[in-house]
Design a protein around this nucleic acid. Sequence first.
DNA 1: TATTGTTATACTCTATAACTATA
DNA 2: TATAGTTATAGAGTATAACAATA
Lengths: 160, 160
Amino acid sequence: MLAQLGAHAAELFAQRIARLDLTPAQAGLLRLLDREPGRSQRQLAEILGMPPSRFVPFADGLEARGLLERRKNPSDRRLYALFLTEEGAELLSRLRGEAAAHEKQFCAALAPSEHQQLTALLRRLAQQQGLRPGIHPGYRSMRTSSTPTAGRPAPDEPRV
Amino acid sequence: MLAQLGAHAAELFAQRIARLDLTPAQAGLLRLLDREPGRSQRQLAEILGMPPSRFVPFADGLEARGLLERRKNPSDRRLYALFLTEEGAELLSRLRGEAAAHEKQFCAALAPSEHQQLTALLRRLAQQQGLRPGIHPGYRSMRTSSTPTAGRPAPDEPRV
DNA sequence: TATTGTTATACTCTATAACTATA
DNA sequence: TATAGTTATAGAGTATAACAATA
């Protein structure tokens, strides 16, 4: 049930941030760049659990939109250091607003005290499982572009 | 966090049932056949949210292993009715044992009363979200064969 | 020689759409 | 003509491995 709910919450969140033209993976990278600015692409790719060859076009898309910036490291010119641009930081702030709204809506059935209870229980589980506070679900196989792959079959398919 | 934990739980569960040579999607179909025996392939595919063309080889694999059975409907010979075989029912029972063990291990950090609390809260959320008690995370894009796609990079990649 | 970023290739997987049999 | 099951094909997406530049 936890897995089912988690997948459902992730799906709703993906729909919500699609209005910002972002995928969950892109949102994760923005957050990561905010927490750990100046990392190399290699490091970021490893943190996200994706091969470097996939990270390159992934970052390309966000760079082309002016959300992140590649700066050459002068002491080791093989390395790029990645940073959020001002525009990227702005989008991240809007993203956080959406995340808060998402959580509020998703937990609307719970009283505030229950919401706190749930959060505390989940946090304990996450700690025991050794999960980092950052978000690392399954970035190894997550959509890195928001292109709907041409005619998609409507977001709300009959599922019974 | 819920999404992250859910994905993690699903991953651990997938590793666990890989010992039974089952993927989460296959496990879901076995459970579904147990709850709703005799449905047509079309119906099952729709319930799982996958296109019929994908369902066919998906069911083929389980049929070849003798876990499910296709029976022709005599009144409408276009239709198949799918049932668990005895062997399939046996495997499902072992699967349920694994699921229980998985939940126990995953929630080991919680006292029994907390475990109950968590379950109750999640159930409330699931009801409000209109999720069916059956398991429907994201079968539309889930591994339907347990072939590891040749050399996989080790199940526990560095993820930081 | 080792490492970073990048590109190319080969491969897997998927959905769309055709096809056959039955209604 | 419409529907169930099946198969074929074309396209997207991925990882592996090669590559150039720098250390």
